[in-house]
Design a protein around this nucleic acid. Structure first.
Lengths: 200, 200
DNA sequence: GTCTATAAGTTGATAGAC
DNA sequence: GTCTATCAACTTATAGAC
């Protein structure tokens, strides 16, 4: 983000608005209103328009705050460094990804239900977007492959899609169903266990 | 749906509204308005409230129209019967699932961005919901396993999650990025190829 | 069952004082 | 930069005629 903040931080209204927006987005989804956001942030509604131009600008800012994280390997991998044992490493990856997806579920939901936001995302697809998560995970698999812990016939991007898909799937169902999701979903261990023979 | 339609079909306003709602949902997401829906369906706005009570009732009806399909094996498998060759069968499953997910992406998006809809879904989780897709896919794997084409150590539900996760992941990225998604995503063949050693 | 007309409330956004 | 005050447009929903 090149334009982040030029001059003084002033009174942190911008930050308060971003935080409140994220909060409301999680509860009300895209039915959020600038009025409600202003109330929660404890600022005047017009300040939102001063800082972000319009509603779409605000949403774009909130989304832009999170989507680059997809390209950040350490976040995607849950902040761990690979231990060497393939199964426990993959479990850590899936667990980390699942936690991450669960957290940004409201943002993903917003992208999926607003065509304007989708257009914006498609335009900046080189810099931001959930698809960028494939890269760091595929890279991890390449590293493991070079270390001889993963078979060299494995397509790293395909392997990454499988790991990410499983994590996202688990996160989505947990988000939709709440605690009851556990009854329907296979545990992470089982998923990694099922996938392992394809990797080693 | 027990209450579907009691008396005569009358003039099909109800159906026209459902169709229009789905259309608008795909374009505008949850920012849809009853006014716009009525315009597209060519009916009076008040007819919507006559048939569905309120906005939420309308959304519930549209969603309820699609979510049971998740439990329908033939749809989930793309209308094909397994041929016997595991790789081509799995490819058909993933392709069918991907097409299905791509089509109901707006509905999935709505569920993810509206907490009221999520609550409704959680309440009826026994009958409807995307999590029900796990069952028919897992069943297919069990059948293949009994036929000796899939290893008997495979956890069928975990295998189903991997297949579904990959298909959903591809569908979501295609939905978000449009045609450009192909540049980022591994082809279905590669995904199935990567997963195959875990199954046989 | 479907319509027209209407109501009360909310929305995103702007103008202008400080 | 932040506020108060204000706006026109639009929102969901209802009443009542046919």
């Amino acid at each position: 983000m090149a334009d982040a903040r030029r001059g003084r931080p002033s009174t942190g209204v911008r930050e308060a608005v971003l935080k409140a927006t994220e909060e409301v987005l999680g509860e009300a989804g895209l039915a959020l209103s600038t009025k409600e956001i202003a109330r929660r942030a404890g600022v005047a509604e017009s300040s939102i328009f001063y800082h972000f131009g319009d509603r779409l600008g605000l949403l774009q800012a909130v989304i832009g705050l999170h989507l680059p994280v997809f390209a950040d390997a350490t976040v995607v991998l849950g902040g761990r460094t690979p231990s060497g044992d393939l199964k426990s490493d993959l479990t850590a990856v899936v667990t980390g990804l699942e936690r991450f997806y669960l957290r940004i579920m409201p943002i993903l939901g917003a992208l999926q239900s607003d065509s304007q936001l989708r257009e914006l995302l498609a335009q900046r697809r080189g810099e931001v977007g959930p698809h960028l998560a494939l890269q760091p995970v595929a890279d991890l698999l390449r590293t493991q492959c070079a270390a001889g812990r993963v078979r060299d016939t494995l397509d790293p991007t395909a392997g990454a899609l499988l790991l990410i898909g499983a994590a996202h799937q688990r996160a989505m169902h947990r988000y939709l169903l709440g605690a009851a999701a556990t009854r329907f979903l296979p545990p992470v261990d089982a998923v990694v266990g099922a996938l392992l023979p394809a990797f080693e």
